[in-house]
Amino acid sequence: MAGRRRGRLSVWRFITLRLLQAIPVILVVITATFFLVRIAPGGPFDSEKPVTREVRAALEAQYRLDLPLHRQYLSYLGDLARGDLGPSFKYSGRSVNELIAAGFPVTAELGLYALLVALVVGGGAGIIAALKPHTAQDYLPMSAAMIGICMPSFLLGPLLVLVFGIHLDWLPVSGWGDISGDKVLPSITLGAAYAAYIARLGRAGMLEVLHQDYIRTARAKGLPQWQVVLKHGLRGGLLPVVAFLGPAFAGLLAGSFVVETIFQIPGLGRFYVQAAFNRDYTMILGTTVFLSVLIVLFNLLSDILAAWMNPRLRAQYGRH
């Protein structure tokens, strides 16, 4: 019992420690983004029709651009603390919060499906390949994985559209949730590269573990091969995959920029790219902060998951 309680305590300790470490990261993100956007050449209203001095002043006051920089920064921090990301420069009358609330659920759904594709296809392929290394059972999925890694989503997406959408006419080529089946191609497009990475990571991890002495012990116990692999091999072998989930999530979000553009999906990624083109500063600022916090938290989550799966890591954090 004592050991168990110590184990659990150290998990909490680990989480607290990592949460505390995340705070400076998030602060750096906010600060860097804020000042970067502020030093950007050209004001937000430059591209529009010339406005009178009065209107301009009124606009600047509305967006608090008339205050000194440090006051702007502080008030922005204050707004952030209340969860207010401010109004959009471009879509007058809409707040960044509203835009994110509209776009994020779509992006999240897309990301979730893509992650599912990546884990199921990639993880499965990796394990299958590791069971019989240097045979067709290994080479086939690994060649597919290599193609997946070398074929970027912005090439794969159009090609899939060309083949399955246009030539074969099996699946819709754009939209999200409008026609049945329109979620298939975007999810595959976004998930493919990560499936490939996970397949390679999973294979390497499983191979490493299957050479460990304790696998020999398990075989010496008389367990059948599938039990040896599933009960003794899987956990250690998939640890690198779990640790990869954090970076993968960040990559998926960035990848959604492209996929949402290709398939014309009204998600956060597309909003972000549009905001970047339109120099919609508050939108860029707000989305960057939102996504960054999300990514930091997801990194944390995958670290915690990896630590929870590895009792030695748990103990390491329990001792200090």
């Binding site: 304790y214 012990t217 010496a220 116990k221 008389g222 367990l223 009960k231 250690g236 030695r312």
Partner: peptide, 21 residues
């Protein structure tokens, strides 16, 4: 027979026990 009629112990007890179990 393995693990029932004939059992084994190995050299390095650190690496021969599954660290995750």
């Amino acid at each position: 027979i393995r693990g029932r009629d004939i059992a084994m112990i190995f050299q390095d007890p650190m690496t021969c026990l599954n660290p995750y179990m």
